[in-house]
Design a protein around this nucleic acid. Structure first.
Length: 255
DNA sequence: ATGGTAGAAACTCTA
């Protein structure tokens, strides 16, 4: 089973690229972030024609998450139970024996801002919820745009980024707290090329200059990790005309 | 110290 995640930064703009990518890579599941669409405007018809069922939790202009799957998904959850949040950033569903959680973690804007505090509170709530989810669903994959680079090797210039949003110590601690539930960062289960990143700022020619961060992740629970065969970043969609600022990440699971 | 780009939408906010 191939599982993938991609922050598309507007599904309206990126739908043709998503359809191309589905055709080329044939994932069983593709989780999307930043669809920036209300549910009524979601591209369900085009995706169905491509052979994918879809769940979507969206809003106008900002945020929005979706789970596309070849097999129909069930038992969907559209928010963290008990956590008050007007922003559509969470979607969970079961596909076969696999439980998938699609996350769009808040960006945090800048360290010390209100949005940064919201990011850390949101991460604490999600971590507490996932601890409970694991008891019901041991075969759990938590994927999406985490807006956190976990380690120095995930940042093109760790010295320049030290203490900045996306790489500050409290954010990295929040990521470690999630791993402490037993999750593995599937990308790091395997040898990977140096300078592997998933996001490059649109500004300053960051992509051409290889100034990226690895902030999109596929986390697999302890009981799922042994089934993971490969995890890779596909940078090709970042090279095309009008790209998303994020590249897709995919993993193959022997389940 | 600032601004660079992109998307959505509305002349600004978010990333």
């Amino acid at each position: 089973m191939r599982l993938a995640t991609w922050n598309v930064n507007s599904l309206k703009v990126r739908l043709p690229q998503v359809l191309d990518w589905l055709k080329l890579h044939q994932p069983d599941i593709l989780c999307l972030q930043e669809t920036k669409l209300e549910d009524a405007n979601f591209s369900a018809g085009e995706l169905a024609a491509a052979g994918y069922h879809a769940l979507h939790s969206g809003q106008k202009t900002y945020n929005g998450v979706a789970i596309l799957s070849r097999a129909k998904a069930g038992d969907a959850i559209l928010a963290v139970p008990g956590f008050e949040d007007s922003q559509k950033r969470v979607l969970a569903a079961s596909i076969g024996k696999l439980r998938v959680v699609c996350l769009y973690v808040p960006n945090g804007q800048s360290v010390g801002s209100d949005k940064y505090r919201y990011k850390l509170e949101w991460l604490a709530a999600v971590t507490a919820w996932l601890k409970r989810e694991l008891t019901s669903f041991p075969q759990l994959a938590v994927v999406g745009d985490y807006n956190i680079a976990p380690e120095e090797r995930d940042v093109h210039d760790p010295k320049a980024w030290e203490g900045q949003v996306l790489f500050s110590a409290p954010e990295r601690k929040a990521f470690q707290d999630l791993l402490a539930l037993g999750f593995k960062d599937s990308f790091r289960l395997f040898e990977q090329p140096a300078n592997s990143f998933t996001w490059w700022d649109y500004r300053m020619n960051a992509f051409r200059r290889k100034m990226g961060l690895r902030i999109d992740h596929i986390l697999v629970s302890a009981s799922l990790a042994p089934a993971c065969r490969v995890c890779s970043i596909d940078v090709e969609p970042r090279r095309v005309e009008r790209p998303s600022d994020h590249a897709p990440v995919w993993a193959d699971l022997d389940i």
